[in-house]
Amino acid sequence: MAKGYNDPAMETRFQDRYYHSADNPEFTKEVERISRTIAHMCFQCGTCTGSCPSAPRSSYRIRKFVRRAVMGLEREALTDPDLWLCTTCYSCTDRCPRGIAPTDIIMAMRNLAFKWDIIPRNFLKTVQLIYTTGHGVPNNDVNRAARVKLGLEAEPETTHKYPEYIPGIQKIIDHYKMKENADRILAEGEH
């Protein structure tokens, strides 16, 4: 006989016993889809946190985020500001005995947080810079002068020298409405 109460009323009452009403089992699947890693294989050994350069200087615990991924604790994960303290050094990923990429779990959660409009401003400003110039760190006058002294051209052989390539980049970014959302979130934060 299958495990159960053998009582339809009780079965209905407890069918969600593994998930708190605020949890979202779809969250685990979404994180695994975006990160392309097997989060559910985690057995919580903590090798990741032990390898993490951010852990000793903050309350950021990568192991906790992986647990949140597996438990479907979407709100708890996406609203925690520690989500943005991962330097993406991938030490946890290289050392994970289960072959999981915890770093990519963080990256997936950050992508999902962006969909909730949760994202630090510096990330959005990078989006704006890349959209307008093609570069996350664009050229400036001091650097242009230095380049010329070196015998290089003032503008590098990138979108800086060939701005005709920028519309193509903007098309890619617009396809995903990334700039539009970045502008909106930044504007909403200003007042």
Partner: peptide
């Protein structure tokens, strides 16, 4: 990869 990929890996 971090500062931009964190926003949307598709892009």
């Amino acid at each position: 990869p971090g500062a931009f990929g964190a926003v949307d890996l598709n892009v």
